[in-house]
C-alpha cells in the first residue's frame, strides 16, 4: 500500500468521529451542558494552555507515571526472573503471585487510601502495582519458554555463564519481556488517570475532576483527549523501541 493512502486511511476514523461529534452538537441532539462542541473544546484547550494549567497537571502526571512505572516494571522484571529461575521462589511465591494478579488494581484503591493516605506514595504504589504484574508474568513465561536446545548448544561449547545470559537468554526472552513492558506502560497510564480522578490534588485526572465539579465539560473533554493522545504516543514510542530491539527479525 502507498504511504499516502495508508496515512489517509489511518486519519479517516478520528476525522469521521470529529465530524459526527460536530454534527451532533450543531443539531443540539444533547443539551450543551452534557455534550460540548469540538469548537468549545478547542477554545478550552487554548485556555488551559494559556493559564499553564494543562502543562502543570500533565507534568505532575508524567512524573508520577515515570516513578511508578519504573519502580513497578523493574521490580516485576526481577521478580519474574527469580520466579522462573528458582524452584524455591516459585514454590513459595508462585500461587500467591498467580492469585494476586487476578485482582483489578482499582479494587486495591480503597484499602491503599486507608493505609497510605492520598499522597504521592499512594499514587506511585498504585501505578507500580499496575506495572508490576504484566512485566513479571512476561519475564516468568519467557524464561520458562527458552527451549532446552539453547541450553544444550551453550553447554556443548562450554559457553561461560555470562555469555549464556547476555548472548542467549536475554536475546531469547527480550521480545516477550518487551511486550509485557509495553502492556504495563499502557496499564500504568490508564490506572494513573483513573486514580487521579478519584483522589489527587493535581494531575490530568484531577484537572478533569475539577472541570466536572464546575460543570466545565469542555475542560473534561480536553482531559479525555490528552489522556488518549498521551497513551497512544507512549505506546507508539515503545513500539519503535521494540522494533529497534528486534531488528534482526526483519533484517
Amino acid at each position: 500500500m502507498k504511504p499516502d493512502l495508508k496515512l489517509i486511511l489511518s486519519v479517516s476514523s478520528p476525522l469521521l468521529l470529529l465530524i459526527v461529534w460536530q454534527a451532533v452538537t450543531a443539531f443540539k441532539l444533547f443539551p450543551p451542558e452534557v455534550l460540548v462542541s469540538p469548537t468549545a473544546v478547542v477554545a478550552a484547550f487554548g485556555e488551559v494552555i494559556a493559564t499553564g494549567e494543562l502543562q502543570r497537571h500533565l507534568s505532575e502526571s508524567l512524573t508520577r507515571l515515570a516513578g511508578g512505572f519504573t519502580t513497578g516494571a523493574s521490580l516485576g522484571l526481577l521478580f519474574g526472573l527469580a520466579l522462573a529461575l528458582s524452584k524455591t521462589v516459585e514454590q513459595v511465591f508462585g500461587p500467591t503471585f498467580q492469585a494476586l494478579r487476578q485482582i483489578p488494581v482499582l479494587a486495591f484503591i480503597p484499602m491503599l487510601i486507608l493505609l497510605l493516605g492520598i499522597d504521592e506514595v499512594f499514587k506511585i504504589v498504585i501505578i507500580a502495582k499496575a506495572a508490576f504484574f504484566p512485566v513479571a508474568l512476561a519475564a516468568y513465561d519467557s524464561v520458562k519458554g527458552v527451549p532446552k536446545s539453547y541450553f544444550e548448544v551453550s553447554s556443548l561449547y562450554r559457553a561461560p555463564w555470562w555469555v549464556l545470559i547476555s548472548k542467549i537468554l536475554i536475546p531469547a526472552t527480550i521480545p516477550n519481556i518487551l511486550a509485557g513492558v509495553r502492556l504495563s506502560l499502557t496499564r500504568s497510564w490508564l490506572v494513573l488517570v483513573a486514580a487521579e480522578l478519584i483522589v489527587a490534588d493535581s494531575g490530568l485526572g484531577q484537572m478533569m475532576e475539577m472541570g466536572r465539579q464546575m460543570f466545565r465539560l469542555d475542560i473534561v473533554m480536553v482531559g479525555v483527549i490528552v489522556a488518549g493522545v498521551i497513551g497512544f504516543g507512549l505506546d507508539r514510542l515503545f513500539q519503535l523501541l521494540q522494533a529497534h530491539a528486534l531488528r534482526w527479525k526483519t533484517a
Partner: peptide, 25 residues
C-alpha cells in the same frame, strides 16, 4: 562436537556470530 538434525543456530545472531559463540570458552 555435535551436529543436530535441526541447525540450532541462534536466530538473532549473524552466521559469523553464531560460529564465534562456539569459541567463547
Amino acid at each position: 562436537g555435535l551436529v543436530f538434525q535441526d541447525h540450532r543456530l541462534f536466530p538473532w545472531m549473524t552466521l559469523e556470530d553464531n560460529i564465534a559463540l562456539a569459541l567463547t570458552n
